[in-house]
Nucleic acid binder design. Structure first.
Length: 704
RNA sequence: GGCGAGGUAGCUCAGUUGGUUAGAGCACAGGAUUCAUAACCCUGAGGUCGGGAGUUCAAAUCUCCUCCUCGCUACCA
């Protein structure tokens, strides 16, 4: 299909902190390269993005810093926006989801679905904080992680041990807002029936995108669809967000993942009155650039929303990248293990293209990749500087020395095979880079650019104009041979500027300055041409395109990382400034909340007994479960299933005495009925310790 | 446990209807050169293609089993 317009989106960064180079490599840089390339092709491109400013973590941060959520997002929106500008990420608009346009757009979107009867209304029990009079989403609920005993686990996930949780599983759930214990109340929400779109999604993605989407994206989608989709709540009880536009829906807002992708639409609206051409015409090519954590939302949920609404184009492709690790470890904002873009720009002024180069050439396109400062140095010094920068520099220096600072002529009767080959290579390079970029293979595309410079170096080496010129007195044609060589090298340089422009825009601009040509030369159609620089045209003095990265720079950055890490672990909860903390670990280390007082009668309801482990075995198909057989005295044997398999080997615990809650209602786990629960103490490091009698007691003795 | 994505030279990656001695860049070694940011150019060494079995005249490529990494997901009363 011939597309008339290309609409490019990059994942909305969350305005709860600055952006790091993982974000850049994951989606913003590839999106920018793609956008710049398409613009150079003179295609009708809109490249939109903005800050995602709603959601729970922002409200929590606001409370901790005693400012409003709006203050939080204003601060980070500014930092993020500036980082992008500094790095040359060329959005046509960088908007934000707290804008009035976005509120209207997302509300209208919701209302349309509501009016069409798309949503299912459901009542459910939710945790309620009576102190602040608010319902709490899972993220608002903090408690002790049942897996690792981290005291500040979220209701949806423990970021310390990575376990996926539900708020029901937390021990001592409390409010993140007030630290108050929670009660349950009924609340109503609107669910989007994803299940009803299952067959459509199957057809659209599983059947339709098999060959065009990247394997990681396609596989993830297929996995979701095949395992069955379920209705998903599209509203939340909160005061921060886009209010649900229905009467009686006070205190309810749109779920961030409902409103955020609509932010792409709102941003386009703010950009142009013709926004609907880009969103509602079939001949628009919509491309979402995201990281792999966003695949499900962009490939399944948002398209289903668009489909339900009707009238919108669907993404043609969603080229998601994997994650970028730093020095062998996963990026962690809480541990401050990251390279922040705003700091890079300060530490390496005027070296944006160097970072762009390294991040693109080592982009996590097919799997998680590792960023190391040593690699940053190697790639910069040995490829970008030595091959690309050096070629341009030597071509210019030689031209000034041997051709008097003017573009030498090409003498047709002296053209040889080597010249013709080089010309051919230049034309091929255009096609190669183009093919890579159209197919979202940015790493390969950049390699082709460097490779062309490499061919230039070889050509020059073979021609040796600095030798040829020495025979000027004996061979009057020498000057013409030198002219031809440098003519071609300089035309090659102009071509390099065009091909490098999407990747290294600052450098391309600098090269235009050196060649004394207007930026318009960088249009893609000019690539492959051998008449970009006019004969006898005076060229400027050469200017080094890149600086080498020194060992000291590398050492300083590594030390900075280590220091950040140390500092983050030490004062994780003090500084309210920026990235040292995240929402989770920023919670002050409070003493676990005491449970409410109970009477002796309450306690007496619990039948605690000593049991002796006779048998222990792993439960099939479960990582964490052990099936225990306990001697409870009086010849009673009991089966208890316990989630301790990660901590103990079955053979090591046989014969141990444990305390058992003997009158707990039975519960089936993995098909095995568990009659009772064994008590464990849990250390701060998550280690489990049996609560057993110090001396051997009779099996079945009562604990009181 | 289920599902998905990866596992190819020291490092980063190519390698789709199975077919000659498995490729590239960087790093490394040797050589050549001096126009150039000690850059460039040439040559070389380096891999039992995670492991095992099978299909085939032929397997990195197909099938089955298995191990490791990452992600999603289930089990924790």
């Amino acid at each position: 299909m011939e597309y008339k317009r290309i609409l490019i989106t990059a994942a909305l960064p969350y305005a709860n902190g600055p952006v790091h180079i993982g974000h850049l490599a994951g989606c913003f840089l590839p999106a920018d390269i793609y956008a710049r390339y398409q613009r150079a092709q003179k295609r009708d491109v809109k490249f939109v993005c903005g800050s995602d400013e709603h959601g729970v973590p922002i409200t929590i941060r606001a409370m901790k810093e005693h400012i409003t959520p709006q203050d939080v997002v204003d601060k980070y929106h500014a930092i993020i926006k500036d980082s992008f500008e500094q790095m040359g990420i060329s959005f046509d608009i960088y908007s934000r989801t707290s804008s009035p346009t976005h509120r209207e757009t997302s509300q209208a979107f919701f209302k349309k679905l509501y009016d069409d009867g798309v949503f299912e209304e459901r009542e459910s029990d939710q945790y309620y904080d009576e102190e602040t009079n608010t319902f709490l989403a899972d993220r608002y609920i903090i408690g002790t992680c049942p897996v690792c005993s981290n005291d500040n686990a979220y209701g949806d996930q423990c970021e310390k041990c990575g376990s996926t949780l539900s708020s029901e599983q937390l021990i001592n759930p409390r409010s993140a807002l007030s630290s108050a214990p929670l009660v349950k109340r009924k609340t109503t929400h609107w669910y989007f029936p994803l299940d009803k779109y299952e067959s459509w999604l199957k057809e659209w993605i599983v059947d339709g995108k098999k060959d065009s989407w990247k394997p990681n994206v396609y596989g993830q989608c297929k996995s979701w669809i095949d395992s069955g989709l379920h209705p998903r709540a599209m509203t939340r009880d909160s005061s921060w967000g886009v209010p649900v536009p229905l009467p009686g829906a006070d205190g309810k807002v749109l779920y961030v993942w409902f409103d955020a992708p609509i932010g792409y639409i709102s941003a386009t609206k703010e950009l142009t009155n013709q926004w609907s051409d880009y969103w509602c015409q079939d001949d628009t090519k919509l491309v979402h650039f995201i990281g792999k954590d966003n695949i499900v939302f962009h490939c399944i949920i948002f398209p289903a929303m668009l489909k339900a609404h009707g009238g919108f184009v669907l993404p043609d492709n969603v080229p998601a990248n994997e994650f970028l690790n730093i020095e062998g470890q996963k990026v962690s904002t809480s541990r401050n293990w990251a390279v922040w873009v705003d700091e890079y720009v300060k530490d390496f002024p005027d070296q944006q293209d160097v970072l762009r180069y390294v991040l693109c050439s080592n982009a996590p396109e097919t799997k998680d990749n590792d960023f190391t400062w040593k690699d940053f140095q190697d790639r910069t010094n040995n490829e970008l500087v030595s091959v690309f920068g050096n070629f341009v520099n030597r071509a210019f220096v030689l031209m000034h020395k041997l051709c008097k600072g003017r573009m030498p002529a090409l003498h047709a009767d002296f053209i040889d095979d080597a010249d013709r080959t080089l010309i051919e290579e230049i034309k091929n390079a255009k096609v190669k880079v183009e093919t890579c970029l159209e197919g979202y293979k940015f790493r390969d595309g950049l390699f082709e650019v460097i490779d062309l410079a490499r061919k230039g170096n070889k050509y020059m080496q073979d021609k040796q104009p600095w030798i040829t010129i020495k025979s000027l007195e004996t061979n009057p044609d020498s000057q013409k041979l030198v002219d031809n060589c440098l003519h071609l090298c300089l035309q090659l340089t102009a071509n390099l500027a065009i091909l490098a422009n999407p990747f290294l825009p600052f450098t391309a601009k600098k090269m235009c300055g050196m060649m004394a040509v207007v930026d318009r030369m960088l249009q893609w159609e000019n690539a492959g041409r051998m008449d970009l620089l006019k004969t006898n045209y005076p060229l400027k003095a050469p200017e080094l395109l890149f600086k080498k990265i020194e060992d000291t720079d590398v050492a300083a950055q590594i030390e900075k990382l280590q220091n950040n890490l140390k500092q983050a672990t030490v004062n994780n909860n003090m500084d309210s400034n920026k990235k040292e903390i995240t929402e989770t670990e920023a919670q002050p280390q409070t003493v676990p909340i005491q449970k409410p007082e109970i009477s002796i009668d309450d306690f007496m309801k619990i039948d605690l007994r000593v049991g002796t482990i006779l048998k222990a075995e792993k439960v099939e198909k479960a990582d964490k479960l052990l099936k225990l057989e306990l001697d409870m005295g009086n010849n009673e044997l009991r089966t208890v299933v316990s989630g301790i398999a990660l901590h103990f080997k079955p053979e090591d615990i046989i014969g141990k005495q444990v305390t058992v809650v003997a009158n707990l209602a039975p519960r089936k786990m993995k098909g095995i009925e568990s009659k009772g629960m064994i008590l464990m103490a849990q250390n701060n490091d998550g280690k489990l310790i049996f609560v057993s009698p110090l001396e051997t007691a009779d099996s079945g003795s009562e604990v009181r």
